[in-house]
Design a protein around this nucleic acid. Structure first.
Length: 256
DNA sequence: ATGGTCGGCAACCGA
């Protein structure tokens, strides 16, 4: 079973890239973040014509999540279990035997901004969401753009970014505490060496070739599911298209 | 040094 995640930075602008990726890789599930579209305007038809089911929750201009799957999704829900639910940032569904939680974690803007405190609290609320809904023996994936680099090797120049909202100690601690539910970072498990990134800023010229990136997108699996992971990879192609997203596609294969 | 480039959406905000 192939599961993938992609921050599209507008699903409507990225539809060609997404349809090509689906045709090339035939994933069983694809989590998308930053769809940037209201539900009434969501482009469901081209996705269904490609042979995929799709559930989504969006809003005008910002945020938005979608979950594509080859088999019909079950137990679909949007948002955290307390207020504010932030529905355009979290989508849960069961695809076959696997629970998938697709999140677009708040970026935080600046470490002194109230949105940064909100981001740190969001990880705590998400930990309670996992505690209340799932057991370690469940087959569970936490996927998405988590807007945080876990370790020094997950940023191209960690010494520059101690005060960046995606690398500041507070964000890394909050992420670590949430991950401590029991999640295994399946990409890192298969690729322990440095130099692997999922995001390359649009504003850095030739960022991919220069290796100026961040690893802020993840596929995190419950212990029971991580055991069944046979490989993981980052596909740079969606970052190198003529109209690229600033994110890559991250995928993992599970023996199910 | 505080940029640079995108997308949405109609002026700038968010990343």
């Amino acid at each position: 079973m192939l599961i993938a995640t992609f921050n599209a930075n507008s699903i409507r602008s990225r539809m060609d890239v997404i349809l090509r990726w689906l045709a090339d890789h035939k994933p069983d599930a694809l989590c998308i973040q930053e769809t940037k579209v209201q539900d009434a305007e969501f482009p469901r038809r081209p996705i269904e014509d490609a042979g995929y089911h799709v559930v989504f929750k969006g809003q005008k201009a910002y945020n938005g999540v979608a979950l594509l799957s080859r088999t019909p999704p079950a137990e679909v829900s949007a948002g955290l279990d307390d207020e504010p639910r932030d529905e355009p940032r979290l989508l849960h569904a069961k695809i076959g035997p696997v629970h998938i939680v697709n999140t677009y974690v708040p970026q935080g803007r600046d470490i002194h901004h109230e949105m940064y405190a909100y981001k740190l609290a969001w990880f705590g609320r998400l930990r309670r969401f996992f505690d209340q809904r799932f057991k370690k023996t469940d087959l569970l994936v936490w996927a998405g753009d988590l807007n945080v680099a876990a370790e020094p090797i997950d940023v191209h120049s960690p010494e520059l970014y101690g005060n960046h909202v995606c690398y500041h100690e507070g964000a890394r601690d909050a992420f670590a505490k949430c991950r401590a539910w029991g999640f295994v970072d399946v990409f890192r498990k298969h690729h322990p060496e440095p130099g692997h990134y999922t995001f390359f800023d649009y504003r850095t010229p030739d960022a991919v070739n220069k290796g100026v990136g961040w690893r802020i997108d993840y596929l995190l699996a419950s212990p029971a599911l991580a055991e069944k992971c046979t490989g993981a990879a980052i596909d740079l192609k969606p970052r190198l298209e003529s109209k690229p997203s600033d994110h890559t596609v991250l995928m993992a294969e599970f023996d199910l």
